[in-house]
């Protein structure tokens, strides 16, 4: 399998990374280089093999239903590039 320019544009859009037009073709080449290399995985017979879910042999930990966190909007918003009254502020979102 390989990607073309439209696919690269589409996945860049999905990944929300602006890709200038002159970078599309080189990216096609780079991604196809990697994809050609991973193609060797098709040699492996994976019939009946379960995909790995976790390398850790243990049950999912669960916490109690107790409020132990939050209450510090200052800290939560301290790194915000733009904020007001403890809100994060972004360009107007049209719904």
């Amino acid at each position: 399998m390989s990607v073309d320019k439209d696919t690269v544009r589409r996945i860049a859009k999905l990944a929300r990374i602006a890709l200038e037009e002159e970078r599309v073709e080189p990216m096609v080449q780079e991604l196809n280089g990697i994809l050609a290399w991973v193609e060797q995985l098709e040699e492996v017979d994976v019939e009946g093999v379960a995909p790995l879910t976790s390398v850790v042999a243990q049950k999912l930990k669960m916490r109690d239903d107790v409020v132990t966190d939050g209450g510090d909007a200052d800290a939560v918003t301290a790194n915000a590039p733009l904020g007001e009254d403890h809100f994060f502020v972004v360009p107007k979102v049209v719904e």
């Binding site: 409020v67 132990t68 939050g70 909007a73 403890h86 994060f88």
Partner: peptide
């Protein structure tokens, strides 16, 4: 562990 309560100050239950 943040509160799930409705109606707090902005980003207070975060």
């Amino acid at each position: 562990g943040a509160s799930a309560e409705f109606g707090a100050e902005p980003n207070a239950h975060v």
